[in-house]
């Protein structure tokens, strides 16, 4: 709403909005700051905000104890892999539901979404046993498969809502122009849906990156992603706030930075395409 307001009103708005934003952001800011403190200053009373002895020692220590890069690559492979695999399966499904809708399309979509309501913990034991017998425990392939299935309903739903915004006449025009189904999806639908697909990809990378049930329960070391990395800090170990902060910062930084840079597409994706 571009409505004219008095400068005074705008100043009040600005102060209020920034206050709220900073309160919400403060835990993250505090963690990042603490990660640069010596352990003793991390728990000093009263707390120090900026006037501490800045150090990178915590990052060095954490990296020596645990090989950050290995966890990082596992996270990247699992998040990106499951998202891309999901996309390949979901694009044809979303095409079908968006452009050849049937009477049961809506029910089908709701059913897909409802599979996400299944409590993961309820099927943990069987999945664990299946994975064990297939040799998928603690493998990246296994996690990619699980996370793909976990997020498939969301990918399908998001793509479906984006595809539905594309007029069917354009696809019919492509058909009249001699395009077969492959050409229609590859040259017409996909390029037109790029913004929507980008949002879908971003959101799913975030969901997969942060998924912390299956990643914790189905990995030990080889395929362990950053969720596992950070969980090893869950029991207190003497003075450890600064190291915990450094580890936390390393775990969240990649996705935080990606999120900030792709904010626009992401906000669109966050709404799951359901809010225009």
């Amino acid at each position: 709403m571009a409505r004219a307001v008095t400068t005074r009103r705008k100043i009040i708005n600005t102060v209020a909005a920034w206050s709220v934003a900073l309160i919400l952001f403060f835990p993250i800011l505090w963690t990042i700051l603490t990660s640069f403190k010596p352990e003793a200053q991390a728990v000093s009373s009263p707390p120090v905000f900026l006037a501490f002895d800045w150090t990178l020692q915590n990052y060095i220590d954490v990296n020596e104890q645990r090989n950050y890069l290995k966890f990082f690559w596992n996270s990247v492979i699992i998040a990106v892999g499951s998202t891309l695999l999901g996309l390949v399966i979901a694009i044809p499904a979303a095409w079908s539901m968006a452009f050849v809708p049937g009477k049961r399309t809506k029910d089908l979509l709701m059913w897909m979404l409802s599979t996400k309501m299944m409590p993961a913990v309820g099927v943990l034991v069987p999945i664990y046993l299946i994975f064990k017998s297939l040799g998928l425990l603690d493998t990246r392939v296994g996690l990619v498969v699980v996370l793909t299935l976990m997020n498939l309903p969301i990918i399908v739903w998001m793509l479906y809502t984006y595809f539905k915004e594309i007029p069917g006449e354009i696809l019919e025009a492509a058909r009249m122009d001699g395009a077969n189904l492959r050409a229609e999806i590859l040259y017409v639908l996909t390029p037109m849906a790029v913004p929507g697909i980008a949002s879908t990809v971003l959101l799913n990378i975030i969901l997969a990156w942060n998924e912390s049930f299956w990643t914790l329960n189905l990995t030990v070391t080889d395929a362990a992603p950053l969720t596992k990395f950070i969980s090893s800090f869950s029991s207190p170990q003497g003075l450890f706030y600064a190291k915990l902060s450094a580890a936390s910062t390393m775990a969240i930084a990649p996705i935080l930075i990606m999120g900030w840079f792709s904010q626009k597409q992401l906000v669109r994706g966050l709404t799951f395409g359901a809010v225009k």
Binding site: E169, I170, E172, A173, A174, R175, P191, V194
Partner: peptide
């Protein structure tokens, strides 16, 4: 025959141009 094989061309109400 599928549309592509009929050798007909169509102009749509919305023009249906490929926007990209």
């Amino acid at each position: 025959l599928p549309p592509a094989k009929r050798g007909l061309a169509m102009v749509f109400q919305s023009y249906a141009l490929y926007p990209h």
